[in-house]
Design a protein around this nucleic acid. Structure first.
Lengths: 353, 353
DNA sequence: CTGTTAGCGCTTTCAG
DNA sequence: CTGAAAGCGCTAACAG
C-alpha cells in the first residue's frame, strides 16, 4: 500500500500522513493518533527508500570493520560492534554493520553509502591509518568518528575520534605486577601495537624495572605461534607476561598449561581488551579492559551530534575523546599482594629500587 | 552529483548511464566502459535509495537476532552472523544485521524492512517459535529462511528452513564417552533445548546406559549458576557432563577447576556449538560443532534462490535442509579410548550391558 | 544499441 | 492545521 491510497482511505492528504509519521511539521495530535491507528489497522508502512530519497536522511550509522582470517580474531570487533549497535539504537539510529574481507570493496561500499546518504554517518574502527588517510577526504561530507589505539592525527579531519589509550592501564599493570614480586615481565606484541609497545617500555622504566630486549616477543598472528612465544619467554625466565590482546593471552595460557606450567604460580598472564570470555577461562584472565559500552556510547554520541550540527549548518569541529582502560584483576594475575610472595620476591629480585 | 548532470557531462542519456551501472538492458561494452571510467573520474555514484525505490530491490538480506543479557551469550549468534555476512557477500548481497534488545521493536522493524523492500529476504535465527508463528504471515511476500535447533513445522510457510540437528552428534558423543569408560554422564540443559534434551535421553538409552533424573540439570542462564550445576552433578558422582552449549561448558570447566576438580581426569566435559574460543580454553573444550560456514552458506543460498524464484514468479516451495553437527574431540573429553581407563571402568561401572 | 518518458513513494515548501 | 504540487534520483518499458 502506498501513501496515496492510504491517505485516501483515511480521508486526509498525503502530506498529513507524512507529517503523522515523520513528526515534522505541524499536525494536530488528534489526527496524528487517528492516522497512526488506521495505519496499524490497514497495515500501511511508509516506504523507507522513498522516505530516505526524499529527506536525504537515513537514520543509519555505518560501522565498518574487516573480517580476520579466523573468527577468534574478530571477537573484539564483534563485541564492540554489538555495543555500537546498542548505542545507536538508543539514539534512534540503526547500525549498518558493514563487514568485509576485501579492503577495496569496503572502501567502495563506504563511498557509495556515504555519498548517497545511505548512512548519515560512519564509525570506523581503524587499525592501520594508511588507507584511512587516503579515502577519508573522499567522504568529507559524511560525518565520521574513528576508534583507534593511537591518538588521531590532526592532519586528517574527522568529526570525532575516540582514542583508547592503554598507557595508564599498562603502567598500572606493570606496577601491580612489580608490587607482587615480579621483576621479569615480558611482553608479546600484537599486530598493530606501536602505542602499547611504547607504553610497556615506559611503564617498565617508571616501575624501576630492568628490561631485556628478549623479553619482548614480536607480534604474531596465529595461535600456533603461541607456544613458541611462551616457550621463548619462559626460557628467559620471565615470570609474568603482558599480551597486546586477550586473544594472545588465551593462546599463551593454553600453551603454557599444556607444557605443565602452572598459572599463575609459575607465570602471571595479563591480556588487553577484556573480552567477555576472559572472565570464564581457567584461570580467569586478568586484562586491561576496554569499556566497550563507554567507547560505543562515546562514539555514537559524538557522531550523532556531528550529524545534527551538520544539519543545522554549524561549524565543523573535531570532538576528541580519550578512554583509559583499567586493569581488571583475575586469577591469572596471581595472588593478592604482600601475602605470599612479596617479601620473598623483594629478596629475590635484585633490580628493585 | 545526480545521474542527469552526469549523463550530460558524458554526453549520453540517463538511461544509458543507468544501464552501465545496473548491468540490465543492452549497452555496448565500449560506452559502458567509458561511462564507468568517467564516473570514477568525476566521482559519480548512483543514489542507492533512488535505485532501490525504483527497482524494488535492495540486494540486502536481513539477519535478525536479539541481544542477550550478557555479551558472552551472544558469541554463537555473533559468529554465525559473521558467517552469514560472508556468505551473503559471496552471493552479491549485503547483510543487514538487525540486532535488537526489544522483541516488539524487532518485529516492527522486520515488518517495515520487508514490506518496503528494504531487504530482499530475511534470515531468522529463531529460538522460541511462538513469536515467529505470529508475525511470519505478515511478511509472507518476503522470502524467509529460518535457522533452528528443531524441525521447522510445516504449518508455518517459509521459503526455506535449516534445521541443525544435534541428535547424531549427541549419540556419537555419548557412545564415545561410554567407550572411554564413562557410564554416569550428566546433562546440563540450555534455555531452549527440548530437541537436544530428547536426543540425550535417547542416546543414553541407545548406548545401553542407565540414567538417573538427577543427572540432568535444569537449564540455567547465568554463570553464577554454573558452580551450582557442576557441584550438584558431581555429588551425583557423574564422571562426564554434556552441556547444551559451549558457554555452559565454559562455566562448568571454570567452576570445576576452581573447586580443584581435575579436567578431564575427574570429569569429562563436552559442549555444543564449537565456538571459535573453545579450541583455546584449558583444557581444550570438546564440542559438538555446528559448521557455521555451512549453515550460513546453506541459508544464504536457499534464500537467494527463493528471491530469484520469486522474481521469476515461480512456484513457491520450501527448501528444507538438515545439518548434523559432529563431535570435535579435544582434551576436555579425556584420553583416547581403551588405553588407560576402559578396562578398569568396565569393571567399575555395573550398568554396562 | 540508445533516448524518452512515466513512474517508484515520500518530504517539503508554499498557499490557504 | 491541512492540502497541492514540485521534486528526490533512478529504473524500465517503449520507441526509435
Amino acid at each position: 500500500m502506498d501513501i496515496r491510497t492510504f491517505a485516501e482511505i483515511v480521508g486526509v492528504s498525503i502530506a498529513t500522513v507524512s507529517r503523522a509519521f515523520s513528526g515534522n511539521g505541524r499536525i494536530s495530535p488528534e489526527t496524528k493518533r487517528h492516522i497512526l491507528k488506521m495505519a496499524k489497522k490497514k497495515g500501511f508502512t511508509p516506504n523507507i527508500h522513498a522516505r530516505r530519497l526524499s529527506s536525504q536522511e537515513s537514520a543509519m550509522l555505518g560501522i565498518f570493520y574487516s573480517f580476520s582470517s579466523e573468527p577468534i580474531f574478530d571477537y573484539y570487533n564483534m563485541e564492540l560492534a554489538q555495543e555500537l549497535a546498542k548505542a545507536a539504537l538508543q539514539q534512534g539510529y540503526t547500525a549498518q554493520l558493514e563487514l568485509t574481507n576485501d579492503d577495496d570493496r569496503q572502501e567502495e561500499r563506504l563511498l557509495q553509502l556515504a555519498s548517497t546518504k545511505a548512512i548519515d554517518g560512519v564509525i570506523l574502527v581503524v587499525g592501520k591509518i594508511a588507507r584511512a588517510r587516503k579515502f577519508l577526504p573522499k567522504i568529507s561530507h559524511c560525518p565520521c568518528v574513528t576508534i583507534t589505539n593511537f591518538p588521531w592525527p590532526k592532519t586528517i579531519p574527522v568529526a570525532g575520534s575516540i582514542f583508547i589509550d592503554f598507557q595508564k592501564g599498562i603502567e598500572q599493570t606493570i606496577s601491580t605486577l612489580r608490587d607482587r614480586g615480579h621483576s621479569r615481565i615480558g611482553y608479546i606484541r600484537g599486530m598493530v601495537d606501536e602505542t602499547k609497545h611504547q607504553a610497556y617500555l615506559m611503564a617498565m622504566e617508571k616501575a624501576g624495572l630492568d628490561l631485556e630486549p628478549s623479553w619482548i616477543h614480536p607480534g604474531y598472528k596465529s595461535f600456533s605461534d603461541g607456544e613458541r612465544a611462551v616457550r621463548a619467554l619462559l626460557k628467559r625466565r620471565v615470570t609474568a607476561i603482558l599480551c597486546a590482546t586477550d586473544i594472545l593471552a588465551l593462546g599463551v595460557m593454553h600453551a603454557a598449561q599444556e607444557d605443565g606450567v602452572c598459572l599463575p604460580e609459575d607465570l602471571a598472564v595479563v591480556g588487553m581488551d577484556d573480552l567477555a570470555v576472559s572472565a570464564f577461562t581457567t584461570p580467569g584472565l586478568a586484562s586491561i579492559g576496554v569499556p566497550r559500552n563507554h567507547v560505543a556510547q562515546a562514539s555514537v554520541e559524538t557522531l550523532t551530534r556531528a550529524i545534527r550540527d551538520k544539519r543545522y549548518d554549524q561549524i565543523k569541529t573535531t570532538y576528541s575523546q580519550t578512554i583509559h582502560p583499567q586493569l581488571v584483576e583475575r586469577h591469572s594475575l596471581g595472588s593478592l599482594p604482600l601475602k605470599n610472595i612479596t617479601k620473598k620476591s623483594f629478596d629475590t629480585s635484585p633490580k628493585n629500587a
